[in-house]
Amino acid sequence: MAKRIDVADLNAYYGPTRAIEGISMTIEPRTVTAFIGPSGCGKSTFLRTLNRMHEVIPGARVEGKVTLDDVDLYGAGVDPVAVRRSIGMVFQRPNPFPTMSIYENVAAGLRLAGVKKKSELDDVVESSLKGANLWKEVENRLKKPGSGLSGGQQQRLCIARAIAVSPDVLLMDEPCSALDPISTTAIEDLISQLKSEYTIVIVTHNMQQAARVSDRTAFFNISGTGTPGRLIEIDDTSRIFANPTEKATEDYITGRFG
């Protein structure tokens, strides 16, 4: 687990419209990398290109190269479903499968992968819920619907579901934006714990959150309305917030725009 991602000159399109342009970066294993920047600058679009979720949108396409430990994720013959299993995603709003129990939410990916043995499913469900710091809260109601949990618990259930299939990378698209402060703290603490096993990338609009949880921060921006998003700079989080190289980065993190 925990693999390195290298991106080279990546461009993403929605039909004829280029949404992001010329992005290159390296995301190191066992780190948390935060993507920050104003709305509409392509952070979430770029995040979805890392596990080939972008191409699910009709008319969307990607140019450039994304490698996971030297495996070209967009190479000929690469199965996008396998890519998404290896690079899991947690979305902005908790999305447990509404008709499934807590147990079945976590086991769903394992069943799709062909795991049928109950003892194996039991072990992975328990370890995944423990990994998401949720086991003690739900161990006596595993057969209850996942949708019956609180918002913060649902988001941790979605994280448990993502890690159950043993991914190499976890992508999180504003995972705390719909949560209360207590649940947000729980998710942030969990992210800090999970980075010992996974490569984690998080999109956030919360500057304080980026400063708290990430090792490296990437700032994205656009030059004007209708122009594609670009990576302005990426560096250690402490440097981005204390001494950024680009004035646009300083202006954004100090609240002068965005």
Results as ranks from 00 to 15, higher is better:
residue 19 A to Y: 05
residue 219 F to N: 07
residue 107 A to G: 02
residue 224 G to C: 03
residue 191 I to H: 00
residue 60 A to D: 08
residue 241 F to E: 03
residue 146 G to C: 08
residue 253 I to V: 11
residue 147 S to V: 09
residue 15 G to M: 12
residue 123 D to V: 03
residue 141 R to V: 02
residue 127 S to E: 15
residue 27 I to K: 07
residue 176 C to W: 03
residue 160 A to N: 02
residue 187 I to D: 03
residue 77 G to K: 04
residue 142 L to D: 09
residue 232 I to P: 05
residue 214 S to G: 00
residue 199 T to M: 06
residue 3 K to W: 00
residue 186 A to S: 15
residue 220 F to M: 15
residue 192 S to W: 05
residue 214 S to Q: 01
residue 156 R to A: 08
residue 115 V to R: 06
residue 34 A to W: 12
residue 149 L to T: 10
residue 3 K to S: 12
residue 217 T to S: 07
residue 142 L to W: 06
residue 8 A to H: 15
residue 212 R to C: 08
residue 156 R to K: 04
residue 6 D to M: 08
residue 194 L to T: 07
residue 87 I to G: 00
residue 28 E to M: 13
residue 76 A to W: 01
residue 43 K to T: 02
residue 257 F to P: 00
residue 117 K to Y: 11
residue 164 A to R: 04
residue 121 L to D: 09
residue 148 G to Y: 11
residue 215 D to N: 06
residue 218 A to F: 09
residue 171 L to E: 06
residue 18 R to Q: 11
residue 125 V to K: 15
residue 180 D to I: 09
residue 196 S to L: 03
residue 199 T to C: 05
residue 112 L to Q: 09
residue 25 M to K: 10
residue 186 A to L: 14
residue 25 M to P: 05
residue 250 E to P: 00
residue 246 E to R: 15
residue 240 I to R: 11
residue 70 D to T: 04
residue 237 T to C: 02
residue 14 Y to M: 11
residue 23 I to M: 04
residue 215 D to G: 02
residue 63 E to T: 07
residue 57 I to H: 14
residue 221 N to R: 03
residue 228 P to Q: 03
residue 100 M to P: 01
residue 224 G to V: 07
residue 218 A to Q: 08
residue 218 A to K: 08
residue 250 E to G: 09
residue 254 T to L: 10
residue 189 D to Q: 13
residue 126 E to S: 06
residue 172 M to T: 04
residue 105 N to D: 01
residue 176 C to I: 00
residue 87 I to P: 04
residue 9 D to A: 01
residue 17 T to G: 01
residue 111 R to K: 15
residue 37 G to Y: 08
residue 51 N to K: 13
residue 151 G to R: 03
residue 137 E to G: 04
residue 31 T to Y: 11
residue 117 K to P: 03
residue 88 G to E: 12
residue 227 T to F: 11
residue 97 F to T: 10
residue 184 T to Y: 06
residue 215 D to T: 10
residue 64 G to H: 10
residue 135 W to Y: 07
residue 115 V to F: 03
residue 142 L to C: 01
residue 226 G to D: 13
residue 143 K to G: 10
residue 40 G to N: 06
residue 109 G to R: 07
residue 157 L to D: 15
